[in-house]
Amino acid sequence: MDVTTLLDRLFPDGHDIAADGVYFDGIGRVFGTEVAVIGTVDNTPIGIELAFRMAGAVLEVVRRHPGRPILLLVDTQGQRLSHRDELLGINGYMAHLAKCIDLARRNGHRVLGLVYGQAVSGGFLATSLLADRCYALPDAEIRVMNLPAMARVTKIPLERLTELSASSPVFAPGVENYRRMGAIAALWQGDLAACLAEALAAPTDGDSRRALGEERGGRQLARKVADRVRHDAA
């Protein structure tokens, strides 16, 4: 779905969003609530400039609009793969962005992520995966690596990976796999404004993704192991 259509469907009460290249931000209105929107288009790689800019936008919302919910609409093929970005410490810029999103949440901003295009690896980690809850459109794509590349790196035959991915959600790309594993709270279809309003109203209670993943059968061990390490007598 292109971003203009998406914004119109999310914010039937209107939106005021400015684009600058692959980046956009602004405000959308849904059922009387103003929502800060920060996002990217065109499956853009996230390099240090973009991470820095998004972090600045989050800080601005926290500073100027206490409590205003934030919706992340980040369409990314992952972190920018570049020598120069590594030289300047791109991991530190990504971490800074993550800290800013976490700050917003701790200061009472509801932070939601909606994957409408692509969400990949580092670009996903530093943005929507840090939201209180992350959602996705059914035709979006979430991945770490596509299967042919994974086959090359792991030296496991592509046929084997393809065969296993039919039954296991654990390594193959796909929003449904991420839903089963608890990272995607739900897929949004139909009335997107209603989905958004419902997500804004839903209670947040810490990081429930492990429990969701267990409940949905996508991650059988994560919750159990983390709970044991947290509570077992030393």
């Binding site: 980690l125 995966l129 770490v144 690596m145 390594f171 990272a183 993704r209 991650r219 994560a222």
Partner: peptide, 21 residues
Amino acid sequence: VRLHEANAGLIAVSEVMRAVL
């Protein structure tokens, strides 16, 4: 992230990130 269990690993890292903070 461990590619053999890439989705689980990626989600796990984000859980680590939230826990650190």
